[in-house]
Simulated scan of single mutants.
Amino acid sequence: MSGYKIDVGKRSRQSDHVYRWDVHYGGEEESVETEYLYCEWDDIVRQFWVKRPIRLAWVTLTASWRALRSGVFAKTFQWSWPAGVTATMPAIAILILLIFGIGLGVAGYLLIGILGLLGGLAIGVALLWLAYQLEQKFNLTWVGRILSFHEREEQSRTHVLDRRRDAFGDLLKARIADGGVDEIMVVGHSYGAALAIAVMSRALDDLPDDAPTLSLLTVGQTVMWLAWLPEAGAMRDEIAAVAESDSVDWVDISAPPDGACFALVDPYTAIGDRNTERHNPKLLNAKFHEIMPEEEFAKPSRNWMRLHFQYIMAGARTGDYDYFAITAGPQTLADRFAHRPTVRDFTRLRRGRMKAVR
């Protein structure tokens, strides 16, 4: 459909937590060889990922309370109200169900005594179970889980995620030193955007004069949910280091219909910097309406989780955003989007004084 062919080679393990495979891009005029390195960290998430329903409800409520108390949710609504709804909806739903269930129990007790109390509580438990089944389908509590994961990992004595960031940073520095390539691109999706920024920041010191073009692509990023946490000073420093660097081309791509990301919000601006002369990051709209099937993009049938993963999926129609051409094609990231200006004047999803910030 797009006029090129991609051949994907066999996957192999390069080292602990790093897989590699080769990709050959064949277009009408050019062919490109790309080495893909997949840096895994899901094993860390699994150590802190809650599965039991009661524990999940507790973790969601406590993590949401800490985010509310620290101002993360307030800032989220200021910068992107859809992201605010996504972040707060799980805790609100759990609280409503709990209050409704307890209310049924109290009402039943007042009407017919103990049997009414037990019946009301039974209905409340059934509603909670129904909510859990809906959560399994719609993943309503993933934000609470992620906030809880981040806090628990930051508070742990092992700091295993920090060590993994350092290892990936060393891998990037070694690949830069090896040379022999035109471009090295680091890609991060959703929460992974925070790790991609962290890895890139670790490689910016003492770059060789003949270093290849360095590119950073963040898509569907949720960086601010983490960067606004009081204990996330290191992350804020990493965002600043990459945003202020002239050695890397950072493009951040998002879609306003995606309520699970901070659409067209500059992470560095959101944590406090107001220097609009920076070229990093370039903010671009993915324009999913151009590449998704109309029936899947239509609002009545829209699957928000499907939308959030469209960034790393093939499109059904040709468009400016093409993940595979971006990551395997002949143009560098900066060259591919050189014709599009950064979008810093999109404030439709903001509230209050943040509408005036660029």
Score class of each variant (00 low, 15 high):
residue 81 W to S: 04
residue 285 N to R: 09
residue 15 S to K: 14
residue 273 D to M: 04
residue 323 Y to G: 00
residue 30 E to I: 09
residue 318 T to D: 00
residue 319 G to S: 07
residue 262 F to Y: 15
residue 337 F to H: 00
residue 181 V to L: 12
residue 239 I to V: 13
residue 334 A to E: 09
residue 116 G to Y: 07
residue 221 Q to V: 10
residue 278 R to A: 12
residue 109 Y to D: 05
residue 314 A to C: 04
residue 141 T to C: 07
residue 110 L to Y: 01
residue 61 L to Y: 10
residue 259 G to Y: 15
residue 63 A to N: 08
residue 86 T to V: 15
residue 158 T to G: 07
residue 139 N to I: 06
residue 85 V to Q: 07
residue 34 T to Q: 02
residue 99 I to K: 13
residue 166 D to K: 11
residue 47 Q to T: 11
residue 294 E to R: 02
residue 325 A to E: 00
residue 237 D to K: 04
residue 251 V to W: 03
residue 337 F to Y: 00
residue 179 G to Q: 10
residue 219 V to N: 10
residue 197 I to V: 10
residue 295 E to Y: 13
residue 268 Y to N: 10
residue 84 G to Y: 11
residue 348 R to S: 12
residue 90 P to W: 12
residue 75 K to T: 11
residue 263 A to P: 07
residue 194 A to F: 10
residue 270 A to W: 05
residue 255 A to F: 02
residue 261 C to A: 15
residue 24 H to R: 03
residue 223 V to H: 04
residue 177 A to K: 06
residue 210 D to P: 04
residue 135 E to G: 04
residue 283 L to R: 01
residue 300 P to E: 03
residue 189 H to M: 05
residue 143 V to F: 15
residue 74 A to W: 05
residue 292 M to K: 01
residue 164 R to H: 03
residue 20 R to L: 15
residue 234 A to H: 09
residue 20 R to W: 13
residue 156 S to G: 05
residue 237 D to V: 03
residue 52 R to V: 13
residue 282 K to R: 12
residue 116 G to N: 02
residue 309 F to C: 02
residue 326 I to A: 03
residue 345 D to T: 14
residue 277 E to S: 14
residue 63 A to R: 08
residue 292 M to Y: 00
residue 37 L to H: 09
residue 180 G to N: 00
residue 253 I to V: 09
residue 47 Q to L: 14
residue 254 S to M: 08
residue 299 K to N: 06
residue 226 L to A: 14
residue 169 G to M: 02
residue 216 L to E: 00
residue 207 L to H: 01
residue 55 R to P: 01
residue 170 D to M: 03
residue 204 L to F: 05
residue 225 W to R: 06
residue 271 I to K: 05
residue 293 P to H: 12
residue 345 D to C: 05
residue 283 L to F: 02
residue 115 L to D: 06
residue 274 R to W: 02
residue 339 H to N: 11
residue 341 P to T: 08
residue 201 S to E: 09
residue 262 F to R: 07
residue 165 R to T: 04
residue 57 A to G: 14
residue 36 Y to Q: 12
residue 71 G to D: 04
residue 154 E to A: 15
residue 46 R to T: 11
residue 61 L to Q: 14
residue 307 L to P: 01
residue 183 E to G: 08
residue 116 G to S: 06
residue 60 T to A: 10
residue 116 G to P: 02
residue 289 H to P: 09
residue 148 S to A: 09
residue 205 D to C: 08
residue 281 P to T: 13
residue 180 G to D: 01
residue 312 I to K: 01
residue 35 E to Q: 14
